[in-house]
Every structure is written in structure tokens, then in C-alpha cells.
Design a protein around this nucleic acid. Structure first.
Length: 271
DNA sequence: CCGGACGCCTGTCGGC
DNA sequence: TGCCGACAGGCGTCCG
């Protein structure tokens, strides 16, 4: 599920509930996420105040006491705010309850997500240290991308999905950005002009911004904190539309696999 | 050093 | 109808 827009939407939903609030308790029903959820987590959080809730790439970070709770939604994770007390379903693995009695419930059928505790400076944690710039970082430019890509042959789609290059772009938004920038997803990254990098970076930023404005993309199970789906799926130009006509030139959209991921593109518009 | 494949896990869908 | 394989929004690790 979640790429940067979905994580951002989740952040916006949980921030007002958590930030500045004291946590009453945490309930873990299933410890088997991508990495084992530390059994000490509930004791660490209980009675502590969440000072700051923020996003870094596709991670949510909650500063609590002397450390940080790191949350990743994996492929199928979501967090929602329970309107009232409700019995947990089979994939409702973690609840966080504030002293006001509000419950944040983490659901994740595939369990590729993560709940980890970081002591001290979170930026030095091994999962966060390797992350590239945020998409809107002013240091991220067509020139910096071109420099980073120089001499490499990998397909541009894999490159922009690499969180060490820039964070937040997954399979949906990579496909959409490349379509918008009219760049073939397999184009070797070292042979892309500065002009094309300018188009692509602009496209990535626009697509992510539009998706956030639409509440994210809901394909099957993503929902924002209040349980509403995201509506960006309606605006998808190519993702999930292999065989349909290109929205720009009407030729049939093609489907290929790049790095084990399905990629949809227009063979005429994207070069 | 780099890039690609694998594996984690469950649900769903299309084809036979 | 039922079964089976392929695939799904991510990403650390391993291997060539």
C-alpha cells in the first residue's frame, strides 16, 4: 500500500490525536511483523507523552520520552482512529490508547510493517541513516540527480524508487511520474539529460502533491485515519491500466517487469 | 561495488 | 465449483 502520500495522510490523521498527549497503554496482539515488535514497547510508552509526530520518507516517527517509536506501514499496513471501542479483527495487531481514551489501531494483513524503538538520535538509526533527501528538499535538483546517476546503467524506474536516491516514491508514483515526464521506465539512468531530469523531478513533486491532496491512493485496503479511502486512484494515468488506451495518445499502454515490479507505460509517449 | 533476485505473509483474482 | 499459481502499494539481505 503506502507510499509517501499515504504515509503523509496517516501522519495528518494521527498527529492531532497523539502530539502533546499522554499514552495510557499499548496493546500488542501480534509481535510478528517484519521484525519482532519489542515486547518492552508497551512498558516504555505507558505514561509517557508523545512530544512530536513526524514523517521521514515512508516512516512515521513518534518522539516519546528519551527515544523514538518508528513505524513503517509495509505493503498493507494502515492506522486508523477508532470512533468507539471495537473488537479487533484478525489483522488488527497493535492499539495505542491515549489518556483521553482515543484508540489508534494498526492493521496489517501481510505484516511487512514495523514497530521499533530507537534510543537516542533517530537519524543515526540504520534504517534512517541510509535515506536520501525528501522529494521537496531544495538540495535535490536535476543536477544532483544527474550527478548521482552518472555512469550507472540501471533503469530510471528502479533509480527513483531507490530510497537512498530520494525517499517516498514507490511503484505507483514512479509509474505515474515517468508517464508525466514522458520518460521510458527502462531508460538507463546515466544517459538522461539535465532537461529530462528537470521534467522528472517536477513530475515526481506534482504527482506526490496531487496524491496527498486527494487523500492518497486506495487500491484495496488503505484508508486514512478516519477510515475514508484516498481518491487518487481515479487520477492514475497508467498504473494498473495496462492494455487500456494512453490518456495522451490513445495507443495501448504496455506492461513490462522491472526489478520484479510491474511497470505500465506508453510506448509512444515515453522514450 | 553494483544490480537483480529472493523472501517475508496473507488475500485476491484469473485460468484451467 | 474448486484448486493452483501469479501477483499485490516495501525493502533488507544475499548472491553473482
Amino acid at each position: 500500500m503506502p507510499e509517501l502520500p499515504e504515509v503523509e495522510i496517516t501522519l495528518q490523521a494521527i498527529r492531532p490525536v497523539l502530539e502533546g498527549r499522554r499514552i495510557a497503554r499499548m496493546t500488542i496482539r501480534h509481535h510478528g511483523l517484519r521484525w519482532p515488535v519489542p515486547p518492552s514497547l508497551p512498558a516504555r510508552l505507558a505514561g509517557q507523552t508523545a512530544h512530536c509526530v513526524r514523517r521521514r520518507g515512508k516512516y512515521l516517527l513518534v518522539e516519546i520520552g528519551g527515544g523514538t517509536l518508528l513505524v513503517h506501514l509495509g505493503m498493507s499496513g494502515s492506522i486508523r482512529l477508532l470512533p468507539r471501542e471495537a473488537a479487533p479483527g484478525p489483522h488488527d495487531h497493535i492499539d495505542i490508547m491515549t489518556v483521553d481514551g482515543r484508540v489508534l489501531r494498526y492493521t496489517d494483513p501481510r505484516r511487512f510493517g514495523a514497530f521499533l524503538w530507537i534510543d537516542g538520535d533517530p537519524t543515526r538509526h540504520k534504517l534512517l541513516r541510509v535515506l536520501g533527501p525528501e522529494p521537496w528538499d531544495p538540495d535535490l535538483t536535476a543536477a544532483s540527480l544527474r550527478a548521482r546517476a552518472a555512469g550507472h546503467k540501471r533503469p530510471v524506474k528502479s533509480f527513483i524508487m531507490d530510497n537512498g536516491v530520494l525517499v517516498g516514491v514507490g511503484n505507483i508514483y514512479a509509474s505515474e511520474s515517468l508517464f508525466r515526464a514522458r520518460i521510458h521506465p527502462k531508460r538507463p539512468v546515466g544517459r538522461i539529460s539535465t532537461a529530462a531530469w528537470t521534467r522528472l523531478l517536477r513530475a515526481i513533486r506534482e504527482v506526490l502533491e496531487e496524491a496527498i491532496r486527494a487523500g492518497g491512493t486506495t487500491l484495496r485496503d488503505f484508508s486514512s485515519g478516519d477510515g475514508r479511502p484516498g481518491y487518487f486512484a481515479r487520477q492514475l494515468a497508467v498504473y494498473g491500466r495496462g492494455g487500456e488506451p494512453c490518456p495522451r495518445c490513445a495507443v495501448r499502454l504496455l506492461e513490462i517487469r522491472i526489478g520484479g515490479r510491474t511497470s505500465v507505460y506508453c510506448g509512444r509517449c515515453q522514450r
